[in-house]
Simulated assay, not measured.
Amino acid sequence: MEISDALERILEDYTDRVLEGNDVLIALKDGIVTLVKGDEGEAPIVIKVDMIDENLNLTLREVFGE
């Protein structure tokens, strides 16, 4: 499988955080990419992709206030 430049950049930017045991969620226009630390015998990082049908165009301030 060929890795896109965008995925390569995501992995470069977030691999250290994932390997420290933190899940990383990245919201895209049409879905969410979740990076999680792989279990023993799996790849070091497991990539999960969830497509979304609806895009909420909200800011943190709109959701949680100032």
Rank of each mutant, 00 (worst) to 15 (best):
M1G: 15
M1R: 12
E2S: 13
I3L: 14
I3H: 06
I3S: 09
D5S: 14
A6H: 06
A6L: 13
L7I: 03
E8G: 13
E8D: 15
E8A: 15
R9C: 10
R9A: 13
R9Q: 13
L11W: 00
L11R: 04
D13F: 07
D13E: 13
T15I: 05
T15D: 05
R17A: 08
R17N: 06
V18Q: 02
L19I: 07
L19F: 01
E20Q: 13
E20A: 14
G21W: 01
N22P: 02
D23N: 10
V24W: 01
V24N: 01
V24M: 01
V24K: 01
V24D: 00
A27M: 11
A27N: 11
A27P: 07
K29E: 13
K29T: 12
K29Q: 12
D30N: 14
D30K: 12
D30H: 15
D30I: 09
I32N: 04
V33N: 05
V33F: 05
T34F: 05
L35G: 02
L35D: 00
V36Q: 04
V36M: 05
V36P: 00
K37G: 03
D39I: 09
E40F: 08
E40S: 09
E40K: 11
G41H: 02
E42T: 05
P44V: 05
P44A: 06
I45N: 04
V46N: 08
V46Y: 00
V46F: 04
K48Y: 07
K48M: 10
K48C: 08
V49F: 12
V49H: 09
V49N: 10
D50Y: 10
M51T: 13
I52V: 15
I52N: 08
D53C: 09
D53K: 11
N55R: 15
L56I: 08
L56F: 11
L56A: 14
L60V: 10
R61S: 13
E62F: 04
E62T: 06
E62M: 06
G65R: 02
G65Y: 01
E66Y: 12
E66L: 13
